[in-house]
């Protein structure tokens, strides 16, 4: 298959329309000097990948992605950014000075995995493009064959919930609280 054949398929145009912004947004996530911009780029990248999911017929998963990530997780991130008072404006120091070792490691992963997958799958065609998987199949799978992992994941979420509360809770020990307030006051005075 030549590049000409490939590019003449309309679905591949759709692919490019989503993949190129996806990569650009992902690039912004890891390079942006502004934390909020990085988080919003992640929103964009995830939205684009949801588009790819729809292209591949995984409509339910795409909407789950939109709802769970763009709806909830990103909000969580923005809260995290605000609460930890991460530098919201431009920040030169957001990344290390030494980038080359990291870039090298990332590049080696990219070459290894992409070479391996191209080697293994080559030009295997995706036949029924855009034929959606019915949500019923997913529902039956989740509550049938995969019910045990499903329950386990549910339990994990519960544990994460309780863990999150425990971690983020401030102990209301009055003595400690007073000490903290006193410390803040002395800090504020000069």
């Amino acid at each position: 298959m030549t590049f000409g054949d490939w590019i003449s398929e309309p679905t591949n145009w759709a692919f490019l329309v989503m993949a190129i912004p996806l990569v650009l947004a992902a690039w912004r996530v890891v390079t942006s000097r502004n934390v909020v911009h990085a988080a919003l780029s992640l929103v964009f990248a995830l939205a684009a990948s949801a588009g790819l999911f729809i292209l591949l017929g995984a409509e339910f998963v795409a909407w789950v992605l939109v709802l769970v990530y763009i709806g909830a997780v990103i909000v969580l991130f923005l809260f995290g950014i605000m609460i930890t008072r991460a530098p919201i404006g431009m920040e030169a120091e957001l990344s290390h000075a030494k980038r080359w070792p990291a870039a090298l490691a990332a590049l080696s992963i990219f070459t290894t995995t992409s070479w391996l997958s191209v080697d293994a799958f080559g030009t295997t065609e995706i036949v029924d493009v855009g034929v959606p998987t019915s949500t019923e199949v997913l529902g039956r799978g989740l509550l049938g064959q995969f019910v045990l992992p499903f329950e386990a994941v549910g339990f994990l979420l519960l544990a994460a919930l309780i863990g999150g509360v425990t971690l983020a809770r401030r102990d209301d020990n009055p003595a400690e609280e007073e000490a903290r307030l006193a410390a803040e006051e002395t800090e504020a005075k000069p």
Partner: peptide, 20 residues
């Protein structure tokens, strides 16, 4: 933690390449 993560990544790549 990032030094450890970097070592982890490099180790994983080495293992994969070795297997291949």
């Amino acid at each position: 933690v990032q030094h450890y993560a970097g070592a982890f990544v490099v180790g994983a790549v080495v293992l994969v390449v070795g297997f291949v």
